[in-house]
Design a protein around this nucleic acid. Structure first.
Ligand code: SF4
Ligand code: SF4
Lengths: 157, 157
DNA sequence: TCTATTCGGACAAGAGTTATCCGAGTCAAG
DNA sequence: CTTGACTCGGATAACTCTTGTCCGAATAGA
């Protein structure tokens, strides 16, 4: 039960991108977070495939958010990086072994799968309720203005 | 984002054990589900360490539940097999890189970690709400009595 | 036109999970 | 009481997936 570590980086990147008006190259984001430049690129590619960010090639290129931060939920980012498939995957054990239940009796999902599905839904709903805009607002509230300005300066350089 | 596949087997075993009055050896459980005998043993060991089942050695030995099924939640089983640590683990990225936030400012958990923690809690709460007794009841409701009796017979043999 | 810069997908290394084995201990029967 | 066979438990390999890295194709600007 472990989600991809890249999710954390991706969320940070989204927050940073929302502050920068201009495209930001992957290399700068990597240096800012002091993480593997090549690996972060992979995560950004995933975000790009999911349609959350758009890449601009060539000089002064980089990544930009495609939508307003209030339209990007945390769940969007998590599913883009970690995949959208549920954590629990039924193997249909009941259809195997000497006491195998015939397939025609397996039309209704079993209680176990139902519980897991319900929990997974609750988890996703909880993540869907928060948007990147909420994160940005919270960061702005708990961080001194001078630090935010310094970050913006560093990004431009 | 994938939980250990052994969780499914462990839950099935708990349901089966609740039906059998006598200790059931791991080999029988494995044959019943048609899964790797040695690997299922590992899962049962984990359940044993967690205190959910008690093992009896020697002839006519096997595993027995330690508590009533109504006192065992699905979450107990999941945490016994899959571990209790949350899926998201913060790497404290904000303390690294050129814009590193000093450690003294990191006393309060950041918004990202808070969201993840909240979602994780919702997930666990959802699993905690259901007990093995509920699963058993649901199985008894959707399965014909003759099948249940056949299972009991097979276990004794 | 040319160059410097960017992303994108293809390519290894490592960690974690899955699967397996045999020995220590125990209970039941004779 | 002796014997015997059966049980779990932890230590041991094979495998899959995640993590991490690299270089080539395409682009914008000079
Ligand atoms: S009982 Fe549920 S978890 Fe088990 S095999 Fe059937 S569908 Fe899957
Ligand atoms: S901002 Fe949150 S997720 Fe990011 S490093 Fe800090 S505590 Fe971890």
């Amino acid at each position: 039960m472990k989600m991809s570590g890249g999710v954390e980086w991706a969320l940070h990147c989204c927050v940073v991108l929302s502050r920068a008006g201009a495209p930001v190259p992957a290399a700068k984001l990597a240096e800012l977070h002091d993480v593997s430049q090549s690996y972060l690129a992979k995560q950004l590619q995933l975000l790009s495939r999911a349609g959350l960010v758009r890449s601009t090639l060539g000089q002064s290129g980089g990544y930009v958010l495609t939508r307003a931060t209030s339209e990007i939920t945390v769940l969007d980012v998590v599913e883009a990086i970690d995949g959208a498939q549920p954590a629990f995957r039924c193997t249909e054990v009941r259809q195997r072994g000497p006491l195998a239940v015939p397939a025609e009796r397996c039309d209704t999902p079993c209680p176990i799968a139902r519980v897991m599905d319900s929990a997974d839904r609750a988890w996703r709903e909880s993540l869907r309720a928060i948007t990147v805009a909420d994160l940005v607002a919270d960061v702005g509230r708990t961080t001194p203005a001078e630090t935010l300005e310094a970050a913006r300066q560093w990004l431009r350089a």
